[in-house]
């Protein structure tokens, strides 16, 4: 229950169309137009990338596109700030490892 279904002040959050996208090969659902990071958060994804040298996990920090902690590989392009990039149906998101995609064992 990460999504707020009803808010005491804001009521119901306006959401776009429900769409599927891919995260490290897995199929996940989200709402079109919301930030990728929000859709991932709703799916329980905390780690967006691992740092190149120390291989430390990073996730959402500022959520307004300033800190670049939440960058991932989106449709093959690394360093995309997922907190300000809108989700599009069928997007392929990869956990970033340094600047490459994290190797995922299927």
């Amino acid at each position: 229950m990460t999504r707020i279904s009803e808010h005491p002040i804001l009521g119901e959050t306006e959401k776009g169309r429900r769409v599927t996208f891919f995260m490290d090969g897995k199929t996940i659902e989200g709402y079109a137009g919301e930030p990728i990071a929000v859709a991932l958060k709703a799916a329980g994804v905390m780690v967006h990338r691992y740092t190149q040298k120390a291989h430390e996990p990073r996730g959402i920090f500022c959520a307004i596109g300033r800190c670049t902690d939440c960058v991932m590989i989106v449709d093959g392009v690394p360093n995309i700030r997922t907190c300000i990039t809108p989700l599009v149906e069928g997007m392929k998101i990869q956990t970033q490892d340094g600047v490459s995609g994290l190797e995922v064992s299927e």
Partner: peptide, 22 residues
């Protein structure tokens, strides 16, 4: 402090008040 789950207060506001997510 760099662990995922450590966030700015502004990030919390953005998530819950703009995008409806805890």
């Amino acid at each position: 402090w760099t662990l995922p789950g450590v966030i700015g207060a502004g990030a919390a506001q953005t998530m819950m008040n703009l995008y409806g997510i805890k």
